[in-house]
């Protein structure tokens, strides 16, 4: 079997029923996708298979022989972040970061397929992705704002509904 991962065509030797997640992580050393539950429940392992978001833990590798797989590593590099990656930095949408690889991939697909900045639509599109840290607020803000890219990565955005009162002001 062969799959193309982030542009590199690679041979796969794992048994055909091995999950794509385990092939990526354990055979091919592509460790961006995370094993959050290995049962489809959290979304930390989501990758693009021929452009469509897939839970790699639910995908038998033999079912995608010949496919193009894009993981979070394939979306952008540290010195060349994609608009969604930039937005996640600028809006502080990642805390512990463990859900982020799947969240960024899903958000990228959502926007690339014409998704709007409507909060409800973003919630519906990404609702299968669990984040235990952020409360989702800043993830939604990041996705809503991401399309244009070109964010200032030396600072972060002020929260949408925040008031700061200093001791002096009180």
């Amino acid at each position: 079997m062969n799959i193309t991962v982030n542009g590199d065509e690679l041979e796969v030797r794992s048994p055909g029923l091995t999950s794509l997640l385990r092939v990526l992580r354990d055979e091919l050393d592509v460790v961006g996708p995370k094993a959050g539950c290995e049962a489809g429940g959290c979304g930390a392992c989501t990758v693009l298979v021929d452009g469509a978001p897939r839970r790699s833990c639910l995908t038998a590798v033999a079912a995608i022989d010949g496919a193009e797989v894009t993981t979070v590593e394939g979306l952008g590099a540290a010195d060349d972040l994609s608009p969604v990656q930039q937005a996640f930095v600028h809006y502080y949408a990642a805390q512990c970061g463990f859900c982020t690889p799947g969240m960024v991939v899903a958000a990228t697909h959502y926007l690339d397929s014409g998704g709007s900045d409507d909060r409800k639509e973003i919630q519906e599109a990404l609702r299968g992705h669990v984040c235990r840290c952020t409360g989702y607020v800043k993830i939604i803000e990041a996705v809503a704002a991401a399309r244009g890219g070109n964010f200032d990565l030396t600072t972060t955005a002020e929260g949408g509904y925040t008031t700061v009162m200093t001791g002096d002001a009180k």
């Binding site: 961006g32 990656q85 502080y92 990565l153 972060t156």
Partner: peptide, 20 residues
């Protein structure tokens, strides 16, 4: 200051290395 996370770029690129 509203500085970005020290490890934010690592998180969004999948480069942050967790135990696994």
């Amino acid at each position: 200051a509203r500085l970005p996370r020290y490890d934010g770029v690592g998180h969004v690129t999948g480069q942050t290395t967790y135990v696994d």
